[in-house]
């Protein structure tokens, strides 16, 4: 039996709960930068879900929850040394590792989905070309947010690739810019038309 003077069990348990809540809250903050809150669901039961999208003819696959975990080691000596750096190290590392796992899982889901639908633009030999950007835009369907504004696609890439993209796109001439704007205009109009169609399905006041 290990001797532990002044166990303070309930207070230490409250402390640990506060730590967990703080980590969850930090994760939520970081997640908000990637996913809008309205696209985040919380379930009380089950580990799978199926989103019903009646009418569009698509067959959605069941989604399945994934467990994200992270193990950080703190030495006893750090605690005995009252090393407050251990606190920040632990908390920040847990948050960043969990976030990393979450991002990896999110990109994998996007990748699986695009592979399946063939909605993939092949870089053909690496690098980034302006025509691939146009091809990407052509393949993507724009959405409309809850306020009726067109939501444009986002590009997620590493800092180096983003810089290359920026250079490649700015090196193109006005024709390219015009072409891009035309696509965006067309896709935006298509998105708004589709949104109108969706909204028109609601019963209107005074309808029979």
């Amino acid at each position: 039996m290990r001797i532990i003077p002044f166990r303070l069990t309930s207070k230490i348990s409250e402390f640990d709960d506060a730590l967990s809540e703080d980590i969850v809250s930090a994760l939520q903050e970081q997640r908000k930068a990637i996913l809008p809150s309205e696209n985040v669901f919380g379930y009380s039961h089950g580990t799978r879900w199926r989103t019903s999208t009646a009418g569009n003819g698509d067959e959605n696959e069941d989604g399945e929850m994934q467990v994200h975990s992270s193990e950080i080691e703190i030495s006893f000596q750090e605690i005995v040394d009252n090393d407050l750096g251990a606190f920040a190290k632990y908390r920040n590392l847990v948050v960043s590792r969990l976030m990393e796992e979450f991002m990896r899982s999110m990109y994998q889901t996007v990748s699986d989905s695009t592979e399946k639908t063939g909605n993939v633009v092949n870089a053909k030999g690496g690098g980034f070309k302006a025509e691939q950007y146009v091809e990407m835009l052509e393949r993507i369907e724009f959405g409309v947010d809850r306020n009726g504004n067109v939501s444009f696609p986002e590009i997620h890439a590493g800092p180096e690739l983003v810089e290359k993209m920026r250079q490649e796109l700015s090196a193109q001439g006005p024709d390219f810019e015009k072409k891009v704007q035309e696509i965006i205009q067309r896709k935006s109009e298509a998105a708004l038309v589709k949104e109108d169609g969706r909204k028109s399905k609601f019963p209107k006041f005074g309808d029979e």
């Binding site: 532990i4 402390f15 640990d16 703190i74 006893f76 005995v80």
Partner: peptide
């Protein structure tokens, strides 16, 4: 040191 918690002991 506490049995189950590390950071709380700071």
């Amino acid at each position: 040191l506490s049995e189950r918690s590390a950071l709380a002991d700071l």
